[in-house]
């Protein structure tokens, strides 16, 4: 899932300051599950924003509602009418949702209420860990399911580097060394010899470094012209 965190209220309030009719729009899928931008957080953000604006003597109103996914046109279409008439939408979706909103409804002014951090999953209540950078050429078979591109601070393919100590990354004790994890996992499957092979440089052209990516599936495309 996509993981995000709400921006500091002051930052949201500053973006909203020049506007009168404001809507805080939640998104109930990924960011709802990671408790950053779902229905509950949207209501909370709206009321905090109202209090803040009252204190600052800013006129206007702050409404709030949520949709299932801001990244899918079907769900945006359902609330199209409701969205009209607002000067500003504070989107509590990830960065993808914000962009999908303005692409589908170009007349809307939408600002981000969240900072999108990563793709990952919760490892315990209240902790979400990054697990994939979407490199476009998954190599997870080699490190037996632990992504060194994402989880090693230097994206090393022939690790671990000289900074790995007691299972932790040189960046700090709160980060596991991905290569220690890979080493241990290979070891538990008696496959340490896999590490002997020199992994060649990665072809980054399938990743964002090759330019913005669009995935086209001709077999499932619908010709909208007919």
């Amino acid at each position: 899932m996509i993981i995000a965190e709400r921006k500091p209220l002051e930052e949201i309030a500053a973006m909203a300051a020049p506007y009168k009719k404001i809507c805080v729009l939640g998104c109930n899928t990924c960011v709802g599950i990671c408790m950053a931008g779902g229905e509950k957080e949207a209501a909370e953000t709206a009321s905090l924003l109202r209090i803040h604006r009252n204190k600052e003597n800013q006129e206007g109103e702050v409404d709030v509602f949520s949709i299932e996914r801001q990244c899918e046109v079907e769900f945006i279409d359902e609330v199209l009418e409701r969205l009209q008439g607002y000067d500003l939408i504070v989107s509590l979706a990830c960065g993808v949702g914000v962009q999908s909103m303005i692409e589908h409804v170009p007349t809307l002014r939408v600002v981000p209420g969240l900072n999108t951090t990563s793709m990952g999953y919760p490892t315990e209540q209240g902790v979400w860990a990054e697990r994939c950078l979407g490199c476009g050429d998954c190599v997870l078979h080699m490190p037996m399911g632990i992504c060194p591109i994402t989880r090693c601070a230097k994206s090393i393919l022939n690790g671990p580097c000289g900074g790995s100590a007691e299972g932790k990354c040189e960046l700090g004790d709160d980060i596991d060394c991905a290569w220690q994890l890979i080493h241990d996992r290979l070891s538990s499957f008696s496959r340490l010899s896999d590490l002997t092979e020199i992994q060649p440089p990665k072809d980054w052209s399938t990743s964002h470094h090759g330019g913005p990516r669009t995935t086209v599936r001709e077999d499932v495309r619908i010709d909208r012209g007919e």
Binding site: A153, I156, C161, E170, I198, W204
Partner: peptide, 24 residues
């Protein structure tokens, strides 16, 4: 060599390259 991570230095906001690793 790989080099110490950029977050240790005086440009902690810089983008680390790590296109290849020290072995490569």
């Amino acid at each position: 060599l790989a080099g110490d991570h950029q977050s240790f230095g005086n440009e902690p906001g810089s983008k680390g390259v790590y296109d290849i690793d020290s072995m490569q």
